[in-house]
Structures are given as structure tokens and as C-alpha cells.
Write a protein that binds this DNA or RNA. Sequence first.
DNA 1: ACCGGGATGTTCT
DNA 2: GAACATCCCGGTG
Length: 191
Amino acid sequence: MPLERGFYARNVLEVAPDLLNKVLGLGDCRGRIVEVEAYGGDDDPASHGFRGMTPRTEVMFGPPGRLYVYFTYGMHWCANVVCGADGECAAVLLRALTPLAGLDRMRERRPAARRDRDLCSGPAKLSAALGIDGATNGADLVGTDGGMEIVDDGIPPPTNPGRSTRIGLTAGNDLSWRWYVPGCADLSRRG
DNA sequence: ACCGGGATGTTCT
DNA sequence: GAACATCCCGGTG
């Protein structure tokens, strides 16, 4: 059973750590979410929506439980889960997964990955591994229409998740809005 | 292990 | 025209 709409319709700072150890599935591929970052609100200069809604960020301002996918550095797609109430701008960036199923398909899509722990150890890596791209933008994670869902398979979030500032930013570095599963081998950085 | 540079093109000022 | 929520490869230690 996919997570319900209400799971996402909360403050992004609550949803982000709660997403740890949930399982993201798309097509034949599944992976456990082990690293996330929160974005949004009126005081986050790193949020894509900080200066108001644009065509790109429309999904991020929309109803919760949908996927916000953006293109960056001329070649990479990154995936977020939209949070909060409809009209708010908030989302959780998925930064790393532990591959669980469909590894053959992931290896095909990620030929540069030397080891399986490199398949999904970064926001653009996991998007590539699962086949997330512009066509996936706005997909609803609640219900199984798009073939994409996030499920709880019984493993709870860590009682004491790792926490740090967000990675790769020039603004908003004072906020510790990154969470991860401590000691996990599949993180984008050693934790 | 760590570091530096190049790839590549959309988005917004 | 600059910035960009990144990744990969090749260098050095």
C-alpha cells in the first residue's frame, strides 16, 4: 500500500526524516530511501520557489504527494517529493537509495557505476537508475497510476538519523536540512 | 583517498 | 549572460 496523501501533507521538516527507510518503486526497480534534503518555505533561499512560482516550479507549489523533477547542469534529472498543503512551496529531495530490486535494469541505465552501491548514491544517479526524467514530473505517488509509489515495508525511520547541512548549495548553508541513515554504505557521501 | 576540471543546456535576470 | 539542489574521469599521494 502506498503512503497516503496525509503523510505528505505535513511540514516538510517532519516529512523529510520520516521518508528515511521507506521504499521507492518505479517499474521493476525498487530502492530504500537512505538520504534526503528538505527545501521550501518562505525563508529558504536555496529553494527553487524562493522567488515565487515559475513554469519550472509549478509542481512544487501544487498538492502534496506528487513528484517534482528538475533538470540541472545540462544533463542531470533530480527528483523531489512535494510536501505541505496545496499552494505551499515545499519538497524533499531524494538523494540516495539502497538498491533492492531491478538491479540489472539499474546497471543498464548506469553503466558508469562500478559497484552496486554506486547505482543510486546521489540525486541524479538514483533518477537515472530508476528512469526518472522530465516525463515523470508531476507524477502522483499516491495510487498506482503512474507506476511510481512510496511504501512502508515495516522498517521504521532511524531513531537518531544523521543530520547535516545540505550539499552543493551556495545559499542556505546555515540550515541543517539533510537527513540520512547513519553508517549506510549507499549515501552520496560517507556518513 | 583526495582533488581539480570539464561536460552540457535549461532557466531566469 | 550567469548560475546551476551533479557526475565522471584522470591526476597525484
